[in-house]
């Protein structure tokens, strides 16, 4: 007997997720069709999901054709998934790890640096160059041009902000001129 691993695994995952939702519904009021409680619709959906998962699982086990699996980029995967988390830690601070909020620039720079090593082709020189250029680009576009309310530096690095402002001062004048032209 041949098992289609992809079907069997996805079926099992759907069943597990459905079970989790159903389990969590315990705390919620289900109610009646006339007066549906917060748990009614989710419980209904969880039941449908479990049923679908079961059919997929059984089909995969009974009459599955073996399926090909392409390789998983483990190193790249871990680094790519790590990058947004590190960004979150650094931009806002993360008390459990005693990370103070440091602001946009350190957060972006670290995220780019981590992400760029996800590719096996990246050399240290490339990674550093990209980090510097992209960080400046992001700061210019998002913080200066679009005016996102994220400080470039925060917490213990706050003293650096005036230098950033000074560096972007000519740029800011150009943007103000553009804005007045567009009347936006």
């Amino acid at each position: 007997m041949q098992i289609n691993v992809k079907d069997a695994a996805s079926g099992a995952i759907f069943i597990l997720i459905a079970a989790w939702f159903a389990f969590q519904t315990q705390e919620l009021q289900v109610g009646t069709p006339l007066r549906m409680g917060p748990g009614f619709f989710p419980l209904l959906l969880a039941a449908v999901l479990a049923l679908l998962g079961a059919i997929i699982l059984v089909k995969g086990v009974l009459k599955g054709k073996p399926s090909e699996m392409t390789g998983v980029p483990w190193r790249g995967g871990v680094l790519i998934l790590l990058a947004p988390i590190v960004f979150g830690f650094v931009v806002r601070g993360f008390a459990p790890l005693a990370i103070p909020p440091l602001g946009l620039v350190p957060a972006v720079a670290l995220a780019i640096l981590i992400a760029s090593f996800a590719s096996r082709r990246t050399t240290v020189f490339m990674a550093v160059t990209m980090t510097v250029l992209l960080t400046i680009f992001c700061l210019a576009v998002f913080q200066k041009l679009l005016g996102l309310p994220i400080p470039p530096f925060a917490g213990p690095l706050e003293w650096l902000n005036p230098y950033v402002d000074a560096a972007f001062a000519p740029f800011g004048a150009a943007w103000a001129a553009l804005k007045s032209v567009f009347g936006g």
Partner: peptide, 10 residues
Amino acid sequence: FPAIIAFCAI
């Protein structure tokens, strides 16, 4: 892709 990650995060 590092650029995409940065834009996504921000």
